[in-house]
């Protein structure tokens, strides 16, 4: 059972995930997040720092989001606790190739708002 909380701050959409994300809800969750990010927004931060579990379906959902945003020229960051199980899985599947993984969600927001020149 996953928890999803959407916040918008200064043109950035923040999606906070809690609980456990598996195949039961991955597709639904991904669609809900995608729907919250309109094309007018700068980008998306998927905050997984409070997510306790993620499986390959969840990872697939994140890859799909990253692709969709990239195609719209929007930025995406994933925040995950480097010591937690989610970061470990992201590392194994080399998610960094799709979108940057950062430790702190706040840093990710700032990162999107002020893109490197």
């Amino acid at each position: 059972m996953v928890g999803l909380e959407i916040e918008e701050r200064d043109e950035v959409v923040i999606a906070r995930l809690t609980g456990e994300l598996d195949i039961a809800e991955a597709t639904f969750t991904g669609e809900a997040i995608a729907a919250a990010v309109s094309t007018a927004r700068l980008g998306l931060v998927v905050d997984c720092s409070k997510l306790e579990f993620i499986d390959s379906s969840g990872i697939a959902m994140l890859f799909s989001l990253a692709r969709r945003l990239a195609s719209r020229r929007q930025s995406m960051r994933v925040a995950a606790d480097p010591e937690g199980p989610v970061a470990r899985v992201l590392e194994i599947v080399e998610f960094e190739r799709a979108a940057p993984v950062v430790a702190e969600p706040e840093a990710a927001i700032t990162d999107i708002q002020s893109p490197p020149a």
């Binding site: 598996d22 195949i23 579990f53």
Partner: peptide, 20 residues
């Protein structure tokens, strides 16, 4: 704790496969 998380993730994949 870490072993638990990793093994559960792996077993979860196997189970997901079984479900799918």
């Amino acid at each position: 704790d870490q072993q638990v998380a990793e093994i559960v993730t792996a077993a979860g994949e196997a189970a997901t496969n079984a479900v799918e």
